[in-house]
Amino acid sequence: MQTTWAYISNYSVYSAMAIFTISFIAHAFETAFAVRAPDAADSTDGNLLLKTLDYKRTEKTARIATAMMILGFILLLAGIVARGISNGHVPWGNMYEFSITGALAFTGAYLAALRKYDLRWLGLFVSISVLLTLGTAVTLLYRDSAPLVPALKSTWLVIHVFAAIISGGVFLLANVVAGAYLYLDRLESRGPRPAWLQRVPSLEVLDQLSYRLVAFVFPLWTFAVIAGAIWAESAWGRYWGWDPKETWAFITWVAYAAYLHARVTVGWRGRRAAWLCIFAGSTFLFNYVYVNVWGSGKHTYSGL
């Protein structure tokens, strides 16, 4: 019975990857074909001819792209739930399980933000990063479904890891936005934006968005670290021991705290703030990848 669920989980994750691929292609198609070459009629007023974006032409593709993203999210969610059933515990016991859950959180953050903001331009980046994450997970990180090691058997696993995964997903989304800001900032310093980027919001909006994402999730990250400390107190006999994972979680916390201070107190905006945001996000990624794969410490479980 457990193996059946494990198979269901694997097939759901594979199907989700296929669906995300379709979503990626649709996003790429939309971005490429919405560019409208100037008509001869436009040139009569003597103005500079610019390629424009006409999303009416690709509305259907855009809808498909978002629908596929939602479908992929549902399949991935099903895959993670099935994995949990086959394990007999929340599926956050090793790096494969963290990665697929992280991909789910990332997609979920994008879809949730999409309801409020016109973020569809971000879909191309979101679908490709989710595909890369899932691809790495199923090829390099996959481990057979297994029971939890004794040290992970605790309610805190759910609380601590859930908070950490959600924080990670939103931090990385903020990083993508900050990266988009820096790229567009460079392009705009040389002239008008190319047509395919015209729907991306203005630099001011991007700047605000990455700040809001970080400000929204920073208390949750603080909570994740504190919940980890409370758990460590009952599992390892100390609430803080400068384990590599703990130390890097603290470094990430300090980096984001510096970012928020730089914005709110000192008034950093734009390029400098975006770089600081990306730096803080990279400490999170470093903690996730390096400490799990090459590091040694109490957070290294079951191979990966």
Binding site: A215, P219, T222, F223, I226, A229, I230, W240, V264
Partner: peptide, 18 residues
């Protein structure tokens, strides 16, 4: 004391950020 400090820190963060 560390726990109380941590909880106060979260409350402080919430009020200053939101």
């Amino acid at each position: 004391y560390a726990l109380i400090g941590a909880i106060l820190a979260i409350l402080g963060l919430l009020s200053s950020l939101y």
